[in-house]
Design a protein around this nucleic acid. Structure first.
Lengths: 198, 198
DNA sequence: CCTGATCTGTCTGTCTCTGACACTTGTGGC
DNA sequence: GCCACAAGTGTCAGAGACAGACAGATCAGG
């Protein structure tokens, strides 16, 4: 990830900063006025750039809230791959998601607000689930490797998608105003719902 | 559902027929040329109506493939509600989805083609997941009623979403060209993946 | 200071989707 | 059979998201 600032890395830093700024402003506006009632033009004006530039940073308006799906997905994949192969698959998945939630670069307040906005609009909910499909493609091969018996692929997909659903539910519940539990605790509870025997 | 053709029902019949026709033509075009390479104008021309009318029947282009989510969702909900309350929740959910798959009004070939198109484009996958969210809102209260203990709501959501993931995985696998199993069989297998003990 | 890569703004265009209005066509009452 | 009314449709106009093209600005490295 961080390689002592690659040559010419100054521009990359600036780019990331602008990107983050646009995302922040956009989420704030969505939170105040609703996703559909805010145009890209308004976001651009609030940030101080042209609408065209906003689209250069984010191919779709929804992406200003979702962020970069691939990066975090690979993070989870790497976590899962580094788990011992004897570990029960559900435990390994749970641990991988937990590692993501405990990742330091996540801002608490901003994350919660983004989650709240995310749950407020069908279009955003859908995009978010699309992100999960991307993650699923990364995780399924690893899970399939650790299964035995027939229909490994199909079963692996079911397990991965179910776990992602738990992940999403936990984060959604966490974003609610009255949630006092930590996100990790909620994650464990939702995982537990699928394993009455454990 | 069918009430011997309500007074003024002739128009409703015509409406449904046009609706089905647009959907059929659209799916065919998408299958041939790709979802993004077909404009609403082309679909309208192929059917013989104005583009405005296509949007009157389907609020979004994606809906020509997805169909009417609410209708089928209510179908599943009613099935689930009519299940005996002692039945294990996973069995009840499985039976409800099976009833939907065995519903007579589903055309085999057309359904498979729609499923294939559906998996080919991010925008369509997203809409499909949105449909699942709608279903989840219908099913979760019923499931929550049948649970005991704490965190009923959270656990019900996890169970419902996981089961929907299984449903989706089964249908996706079924749409694959080399799938020989019936959709019901695939559904049972994906359900089984989450219950190693059963 | 110069050169080339990168970023940005502006212009232009396409496509989806919506509202408003007028026109046509069935439906049901008389 | 005729007529008023509702429903469906086409045409027009417009907002908004996004992409391509191009010119100018900016900044790294020689």
């Amino acid at each position: 990830m961080s390689e002592v600032t690659k040559p010419g890395g100054m521009r990359a830093i600036a780019r990331d900063a602008v990107r983050a700024r646009i995302s922040e402003v956009a989420v704030d506006l969505f939170d105040e006025q609703g996703f559909d009632n805010v145009t890209v033009e308004q976001i651009a004006a609030a940030v101080g750039v042209s609408p065209r530039s906003v689209h250069r940073y984010f191919p779709a308006k929804e992406d200003t809230v979702i962020g970069d799906p691939a990066g975090w997905g690979e993070h989870v994949r790497d976590q899962l791959a580094s788990r011992p192969s004897e570990e029960p698959i559900w435990d390994a998945l749970l641990a991988s998601y937990e590692a993501l939630l405990l990742s330091p670069s996540r801002n608490e307040a901003q994350g919660r607000k983004a989650m709240r906005v995310l749950g407020s609009t069908p279009a955003l909910r859908a995009r978010n689930l699309e992100k999960h499909l991307l993650w699923a493609r990364l995780l399924t091969p690893i899970v399939a490797e650790r299964l035995e018996g027939n229909y490994r692929e199909l079963r692996a997909e079911a397990i991965v998608q179910a776990s992602l659903a738990c992940f999403d539910i936990a984060l959604t519940a966490w974003a609610e105003a009255d949630a006092v539990e930590s996100s990790v605790e909620l994650l464990r509870r939702s995982f537990g719902a699928l394993q009455p025997t454990a």
